[in-house]
């Protein structure tokens, strides 16, 4: 990819710049689409239509109109807020989520950085998100914001454990933390004759690992049923309460970017990343990007689907689920996968 860009762009820094903003472009376009899709999914699940007017066909440009509106909004900083932290928080949130995309292999031809500790880096850098949320909640000088931030801290710290343990159980199979190598491992025509050589089909315990990972990733990205930090209906938006205009929009963007990030990690670890489901058919760098994003979007869709199905958990239920079910299960699963690897 870098060589390809260097072939028609002159200077070195420019190539690096273009190279590094490709995920940003993907995230922005995806966020516009995903917010529209979310509203459509919400609408149709509730037997409504969702946005229908803006832009003509099924209100496709509703998000663009919302974005334009948001940019024009007044940037309000509460009088008794900590101005510096308050203004910084949304940027740190988005930076944390964007930085994680470096280690995602979008296709066989594009990965931000071939670092060997890919998954570990992603897990580590996304923790910064909870720091930014606590920053936002604390700097707002508002009880609801602070409550939301405290919930986030508790939630993120708790759910990082099952996430990391399930990722670890996948790493036992792959033997590498580099996501590009993990994906390349899953290249291959077929497993058991007809299934693609994806890790989810590697052993029955991988299915359990995926379910655990998916639940934990829902909690990590603060989606329903784990959206306690925001909980519009009880905390009036949680840590976002005092934010308005584009700063609030950045939090929104971060949430959606986070969804995509965790879906892409899930797709890479369990569903073969940029590999085509049809073996060598429709394979290649461009098709790779297509498959990767399609798999990611399917998981994002499942997240939306769940959002409009399940009610929000209580704080104690959230902790119950994590510490009494997810963590023990993920550890048992880790041991079972390790045994499977030893035996077969």
């Amino acid at each position: 990819m870098q060589q390809f860009l260097e072939s028609f762009l002159p200077a070195g820094p420019l190539v690096v710049f273009v190279f590094s903003i490709i995920p940003l472009m993907i995230i922005l376009v995806y966020a516009l689409f995903a917010i529209w899709l979310e509203r459509k999914v919400a609408g149709h699940i509730q037997d409504r239509l969702g946005p229908m007017v803006t832009g003509g066909w099924h209100g496709w440009s509703q998000t663009i109109a919302d974005l334009l509106k948001m940019i024009q909004k007044e940037d309000i900083v509460p009088a008794k807020a900590d101005r510096f932290l308050f203004k910084m928080a949304p940027f740190i949130a988005f930076a944390a989520s964007y930085a994680a995309f470096v280690a995602i292999p979008f296709s066989s031809g594009y990965i931000g950085s071939m670092i060997d500790i890919g998954v570990f880096y992603i897990v580590a850098i996304t923790s910064l998100l909870s720091v930014s949320i606590i920053m936002a909640g604390w700097a707002s000088n508002n009880k609801w914001s602070l409550l939301g931030a405290m919930r986030t801290a508790a939630q993120t710290v708790s759910y990082e454990v099952p996430t990391v343990v399930t990722i670890l159980s996948v790493i036992i199979v792959t033997g590498t933390l580099n996501l590009m190598e993990v994906t390349e491992m899953q290249t291959g025509n077929a497993f058991l004759g007809f299934l693609p050589n994806w890790l989810i089909f590697h052993s029955p315990f991988m299915v359990i690992a995926f379910v655990l990972f998916f639940i934990a990733s829902l909690a990590e990205s603060h989606r329903v049923p784990f959206d306690l930090p925001e909980s519009e209906s009880e905390l009036v938006g949680g840590y976002q309460t005092e934010y308005s205009g584009m700063r609030w929009g950045l939090f929104m963007l971060t949430e959606y970017a986070d969804m995509l990030l965790l879906s892409l990690v899930g797709a890479t670890l369990f569903f073969g990343g940029w590999n085509s489901p049809f073996g060598s058919f429709m394979d290649g760098p461009v098709w790779g990007a297509f498959w990767m994003l399609l798999k990611g979007m399917l998981l994002v869709f499942v997240m939306m689907w769940l959002r409009w199905t399940l009610p929000r958990l209580r704080v104690d239920q959230l902790m119950n689920l994590c510490w009494k079910y997810l963590i023990p299960l993920s550890f048992v699963n880790l041991v079972l996968i390790a045994l499977w690897e030893l035996i077969f």
């Binding site: 609408g43 149709h44 699940i45 509730q46 037997d47 409504r48 239509l49 229908m52 689907w305």
Partner: peptide
């Protein structure tokens, strides 16, 4: 419900 006809009147 995702595929049932919506009840919205435009």
């Amino acid at each position: 419900h995702l595929f049932t006809r919506s009840v919205t009147v435009q």
